[in-house]
C-alpha cells in the first residue's frame, strides 16, 4: 500500500468530514425543527438550539390516537409499508429469474428485451400518468394499494432486473455449469448458488426498491385520495397543505418516515459488504 503524507491524510479526512456535514446537516436541522416550538421556528434569526424543546409533535403523530394528524400519519405509515414491501417482494421475485435468464441463457432477442425494459424505466412519469390513471379508473383501482403496487412494480422490475443482471454477469459461468453437472436444475442453481453469491447485490436491489417505493410522490399523489391508500410522502405534504403549515409537525413526520428505511439499511449493511467471491475460481 502506498503511504500517504500527513497533508494528504488531512485532505482526505477533511473532505470526508465536509461530506458528512453536508449530508447530515439537513437531517439535524429537520430534527431540531421537529422538537422546536412554532414560536422558535417563526422568529428570525433562526437559532440552532431552540429555546424550549418538546416532543409534542411526536406524541401527536404516534401517541395520541384520537388526533386527526395521528390517524392520517399512522394510516399512511401502514399504507407505505404495505405498498413498499409488496412492490419490492413482487418485483424481486420477477426480477431474479428475469435477470438470471438475461445473464445466462442464450438468444439474441433477450438482450433487446432488456433494452426495452430499461427504456420504459427512462420514460418520464408525466408521459405515463394519464393513460395509467384512466386505466386504473376503469378497473376501479383508484385509491387502492393494488394500484400503487402495480405502478411501482412497473418501475422497479426493469430497475432491479438490470441491477441484478449486471451482478449475475460477474459470477463466473463455471459456477453455473458445475451445479448443472452435479445434478441441479436451473431453479436449484439460482437458489443454491447464484442467489447466495449475489447476496450483496440482492440486498442492494431490495434496499433501492424499498426506498424508491417509499419515497415515490407523484403517482401516490394522483392515484390516492384518502387514508385508505395515501402513503407517507402524500400524507406529509397534506400537513403542509392546510391553512397554516405546522413545520414542527411536518419535520417530526419526516424524521419518523426515515426510520424504517434507515433501519433496513442498517440491518442490510452486512450483506451489502461484498467479498464473498474470493476463492471460488482460480487462485
Amino acid at each position: 500500500m502506498i503511504k500517504r503524507s500527513k497533508i494528504q491524510t488531512a485532505i482526505v479526512y477533511s473532505s470526508a468530514i465536509l461530506l458528512g456535514l453536508v449530508l447530515l446537516c439537513p437531517v439535524l436541522w429537520l430534527f431540531i425543527m421537529s422538537v422546536s416550538s412554532t414560536k422558535d421556528l417563526t422568529t428570525l434569526p433562526l437559532s440552532w438550539i431552540p429555546a424550549d424543546i418538546s416532543f409534542n409533535n411526536y406524541i401527536s403523530l404516534i401517541g395520541d390516537f384520537d388526533s386527526t394528524s395521528a390517524e392520517s400519519f399512522l394510516y399512511a405509515l401502514r399504507n407505505s409499508l404495505i405498498v413498499a414491501i409488496s412492490a419490492t417482494v413482487l418485483s424481486l421475485s420477477v426480477a431474479i429469474p428475469a435477470a438470471y435468464s438475461l445473464s445466462r441463457l442464450p438468444g439474441k432477442r433477450r438482450s433487446s428485451l432488456l433494452f426495452i425494459a430499461i427504456a420504459t424505466f427512462m420514460m418520464p412519469p408525466v408521459a405515463l400518468v394519464l393513460p395509467l390513471y384512466s386505466a386504473m379508473a376503469s378497473l376501479g383501482l383508484l385509491n387502492t394499494h393494488i394500484a400503487l403496487i402495480a405502478v411501482y412494480c412497473g418501475v422497479l422490475v426493469p430497475f432491479t432486473t438490470w441491477l441484478l443482471k449486471s451482478n449475475f454477469d460477474a459470477i463466473p459461468i463455471d459456477l453455473d455449469e458445475a451445479p448443472l453437472i452435479d445434478g441441479a436444475n436451473r431453479l436449484q442453481i439460482i437458489w443454491y448458488i447464484t442467489l447466495p453469491i449475489a447476496k450483496p447485490a440482492l440486498g442492494a436491489a431490495a434496499l433501492m426498491a424499498v426506498l424508491m417505493a417509499w419515497d415515490e410522490f407523484f403517482y401516490a399523489l394522483l392515484f390516492t385520495n384518502d387514508i385508505r391508500a395515501k402513503t407517507l410522502p402524500v400524507a406529509i405534504a397534506d400537513f403542509a397543505a392546510g391553512r397554516v403549515a405546522d413545520y414542527g409537525l411536518i419535520s417530526a413526520a419526516g424524521i419518523l418516515a426515515t426510520i424504517p428505511p434507515v433501519s433496513m439499511a442498517y440491518f442490510l449493511q452486512k450483506s451489502l459488504v461484498s467479498g464473498l467471491m474470493s476463492g471460488s475460481v482460480k487462485g
Partner: peptide, 9 residues
C-alpha cells in the same frame, strides 16, 4: 473444471 468452480459460500 479448470477454474475449480468451487461454491464460495
Amino acid at each position: 473444471f479448470q477454474s475449480y468452480a468451487l461454491y464460495p459460500h
